[in-house]
């Protein structure tokens, strides 16, 4: 069972310290929600976890299954089983989804000698399941996609690449009600004993479909409160003020 352990993590971007000692532990089978007001550092945490080069780690550690990833490259982290569904996925002009996913899959699952045709059939199936036409296979990655299409494609990547720890950064933004339902179904389908989820969100919408067992509140660069879904319910009603007031 995989375990992602974040210990006393501090990090900065463009010289500004955003994370100031974050502690979190996500294990297989668990669903964690990370909430917090705008600017609390939620997306920063996601980017730091996957090793985005613009973010500098100042202290603390990130381990996955006991393997220290604190200074690992993004590709090493991906190979270790970490996956981030980006809040705003970037377009990669000219790189087709087909070859992109194929190349990524080969890196992450080098022992699987799945045939090209079979692999594409699998991708097409996943595309259809999130409501994307299978012709997306020959389109450039995120190029000309709407916000919602980008989000759906992040979920397709999750389903295909089969990571152990999944971080979803505002996966619900840009999705209409129906799309959100499809995406939530996929997440539930993928969720099992050997996959842990960290769902980053600043409001409740997605948590209605996917009930997290653990809810954490990130504020001013630290996890200042942890609880269960009662905590998210209260945030829904009262906002973050009651936590700030403590």
């Amino acid at each position: 069972m995989p375990t992602l352990e974040i210990k006393n993590l501090s990090a900065s971007v463009e010289g500004k310290e955003i994370l100031k000692g974050v502690n979190l532990k996500v294990s297989g089978g668990e669903i964690h929600a990370l909430m917090g007001p705008n600017g609390a550092g939620k997306s920063t945490l996601g980017n730091v976890l996957i090793g985005h080069p613009n973010y500098v780690i100042n202290g603390g550690s990130i381990t996955l299954d006991g393997k220290d990833l604190t200074n690992a490259t993004p590709e090493e982290r991906a190979k270790a089983g970490l996956f981030l569904a980006f809040q705003s996925p970037v377009a990669v002009v000219g790189v087709k989804i087909s070859s992109f996913l194929r190349a990524a899959y080969k890196q992450l699952h080098p022992d699987d000698n799945i045939k090209l045709q079979e692999f594409y059939d699998m991708v097409k199936k996943e595309l259809r399941r999130v409501g994307l036409d299978e012709s997306f296979l020959s389109r450039s990655v995120n190029d000309g996609f709407s916000g919602g299409e980008r989000k759906r494609f992040e979920i397709v990547q999750m389903m295909i690449l089969k990571p152990k720890i999944v971080i979803l950064d505002e996966i619900d933004s840009g999705l209409d009600v129906d799309a959100l339902k499809l995406v939530a179904e996929e997440i539930k389908e993928y969720h099992n004993e050997s996959v842990g989820f960290l769902i980053i969100t600043h409001y409740q919408r997605i948590l209605k479909d996917i009930r997290p067992e653990f809810v954490h509140v990130l504020m001013d660069g630290k996890v200042i409160r942890s609880g269960d879904h009662e905590l998210s319910d209260r945030i829904e009603e009262e906002g973050y003020e009651f936590i700030r007031g403590v």
Partner: peptide
């Protein structure tokens, strides 16, 4: 960063582009 987060090396990512 996006492509590398999916397991591709920087080299492979830029070659693909």
């Amino acid at each position: 960063a996006y492509m590398r987060s999916r397991g591709l090396s920087e080299d492979e990512a830029s070659s693909m582009i």
